[in-house]
Simulated assay, not measured.
Amino acid sequence: MRPRSSARLLTIPLLLAPAMLPAQGLAPGRWDVKSTGVELVIPGVPAFMVRMMQGKSKTENKCVLPADARSGVATLMAPKPEARCSVERAVVANGRVDHVMLCPQKKGGGAPMRITRVGTYTPAGFALRMTMTGTTPKGPLRIVADQVATHAGPKCK
């Protein structure tokens, strides 16, 4: 019995160790970031359309070059340059993500949209809860989505 108990005690630190490691590089190639709508408050959009979108998923393909892969999971959260977003906070460490950015509205005018992401990551990808809030000309907007990133292959399309 004693060896069995010792084995259990030894297993616990081994299971916890991956979450305690600092950010690691990613595999280069194609990554899929799947976003699934959880809560949608979109002013000006009919309620039946919002209900149709809730629970639906959209997948964005990202190409991670070998030079960018060394930056780890933060590479997958970097905004596209044309979005002109500014990163307010980016803490990606010890298996946890706390990321906030501000993005201007597409049609100009109004305060920027605030996008927060919190969750966990490993070298295999991430699982985050994304919340976008802001005010549009038609009223307050709030979109909550679960995001999961997975490596889809060594080559980009």
Rank of each mutant, 00 (worst) to 15 (best):
residue 50 V to N: 11
residue 50 V to S: 07
residue 50 V to E: 09
residue 51 R to V: 04
residue 51 R to E: 12
residue 51 R to Q: 13
residue 51 R to L: 02
residue 52 M to A: 10
residue 52 M to K: 00
residue 52 M to N: 12
residue 52 M to Q: 08
residue 53 M to Y: 06
residue 53 M to L: 07
residue 54 Q to F: 02
residue 55 G to E: 01
residue 55 G to K: 04
residue 55 G to I: 02
residue 56 K to I: 03
residue 56 K to N: 04
residue 56 K to T: 06
residue 56 K to A: 10
residue 56 K to H: 00
residue 57 S to V: 06
residue 57 S to M: 13
residue 57 S to F: 11
residue 58 K to G: 14
residue 58 K to T: 11
residue 58 K to F: 13
residue 59 T to G: 11
residue 59 T to P: 08
residue 59 T to Q: 11
residue 59 T to M: 12
residue 59 T to S: 11
residue 59 T to H: 11
residue 60 E to M: 09
residue 61 N to M: 14
residue 61 N to Q: 15
residue 61 N to S: 15
residue 62 K to V: 02
residue 62 K to S: 03
residue 62 K to G: 01
residue 63 C to F: 01
residue 63 C to L: 05
residue 63 C to R: 06
residue 63 C to V: 05
residue 63 C to E: 07
residue 64 V to I: 14
residue 64 V to M: 07
residue 64 V to A: 08
residue 64 V to P: 01
residue 64 V to N: 03
residue 65 L to G: 05
residue 65 L to N: 03
residue 65 L to C: 01
residue 65 L to R: 12
residue 65 L to P: 04
residue 65 L to F: 02
residue 66 P to Y: 15
residue 66 P to C: 10
residue 66 P to L: 15
residue 67 A to F: 15
residue 67 A to P: 03
residue 67 A to R: 15
residue 67 A to N: 14
residue 68 D to Y: 00
residue 69 A to L: 04
residue 69 A to H: 06
residue 69 A to E: 02
residue 69 A to N: 00
residue 70 R to H: 08
residue 71 S to C: 04
residue 72 G to H: 10
residue 72 G to W: 10
residue 72 G to Q: 04
residue 73 V to C: 10
residue 73 V to W: 02
residue 73 V to P: 09
residue 73 V to Q: 10
residue 74 A to Q: 11
residue 74 A to M: 14
residue 74 A to H: 09
residue 74 A to L: 12
residue 75 T to H: 07
residue 76 L to P: 05
residue 76 L to I: 01
residue 76 L to S: 00
residue 76 L to K: 00
residue 77 M to E: 13
residue 77 M to T: 06
residue 78 A to Y: 10
residue 78 A to Q: 07
residue 78 A to G: 08
residue 79 P to M: 03
residue 80 K to T: 15
residue 80 K to M: 11
residue 80 K to A: 15
residue 80 K to Q: 14
residue 81 P to S: 09
residue 81 P to G: 04
residue 81 P to C: 09
